[in-house]
Design a protein around this nucleic acid. Sequence first.
DNA 1: TTAAACATACCGCGCGGTCGGTTTGTTAAC
DNA 2: GTTAACAAACCGACCGCGCGGTATGTTTAA
Lengths: 184, 184
Amino acid sequence: MNEGYERKKQPELVRRTLIDCAARLATERGLQAVTVQAVADAAGVTKGGLFHHFPNKEKLIDAVLKDQIDKFDAAIEATLAHDGERYGCFTRAYVIATFSMAEFAPALESTCVALLTDPVARTHWSDWLRARLQRHHATDAAPELEIVRYAADGVWLADLQQLPADLRMDRDQLRTRLIGLATE
Amino acid sequence: MNEGYERKKQPELVRRTLIDCAARLATERGLQAVTVQAVADAAGVTKGGLFHHFPNKEKLIDAVLKDQIDKFDAAIEATLAHDGERYGCFTRAYVIATFSMAEFAPALESTCVALLTDPVARTHWSDWLRARLQRHHATDAAPELEIVRYAADGVWLADLQQLPADLRMDRDQLRTRLIGLATE
DNA sequence: TTAAACATACCGCGCGGTCGGTTTGTTAAC
DNA sequence: GTTAACAAACCGACCGCGCGGTATGTTTAA
């Protein structure tokens, strides 16, 4: 009847659950713990069920990585939309996105790095990185801004080490300083 | 005759070769390519021979990681020894070590991150990171210096992505700027 | 009735690891 | 100097397990 066919049950929801569970596993127990069986178990599905949604494991990993990238991109765009100033707007958005990702999705944060060891995933990752750098160059070309972006990446890297807070700079102060370095 | 017994052949050399080959494999083909068989083949030894030097794979990975950490520490100490100024000396050494590692051992550089996904290796890594941070706090406590260190980490992360140079800042200029930020 | 959305059972392969044997080098008795 | 004795260094064949993936059966919604 309807041209756009309606799905029965909720396959999209199961798909989402599988992606989230895979990301969670990669973060909490390392990439080696991300087996098809483990992901299926965590999602409350059998292995056969998982392979109904993803043709193979590689496609699942791809989906996880794409999901992470999309979230980060969305965070950047959301900030960019509310930034009136031109100079350093992308860098500021990048810094803010990095910090907000750490706050609102700490468990998912390190998934990307965990996936970096996978050659296939690494290709996709590089493609996205390249696109991001090109965009960064188009708007924020100043060397000072590039350094700020490097610092944000460093913070991101430090976050997923889960180091004790007393050994690190105050978080709000750190963010404020970085944003300040990307302003004016 | 001699109290300290002399070794026959050169087992230490084989051990070194195994570690280097494992690091090379992890860098060039990802951690998943670091199988006992592959490492043994690359080192010109059989699998049985490898297990004569390392009780299990975990100990081999541990040795690789320790080797990388030692190299980086040595680079830091070497620079520290020739730095007369007090303020920011550790940060400057950290920056220089990061850049020199990328230049002189580019193939080995990303090994550590590849190993970060391994839970066991990650523990050792965290221990070293903690010690490094404590030392950093003891000498270079200023927030400006901590940000420079974050930036160096970001550069390190960007290096192992092997992004095209035209999308990145000039390397010498970048290093000079970072060192400048850690001076005075 | 039909097809999507699963479950169940199974397979082949490659991995880490083991074990018995062989070579190589050192020591010491004679 | 010769040689027996011993241990380190290493090889090669093998094993069990867990993985990704498949083939087929079963349920559920339209």
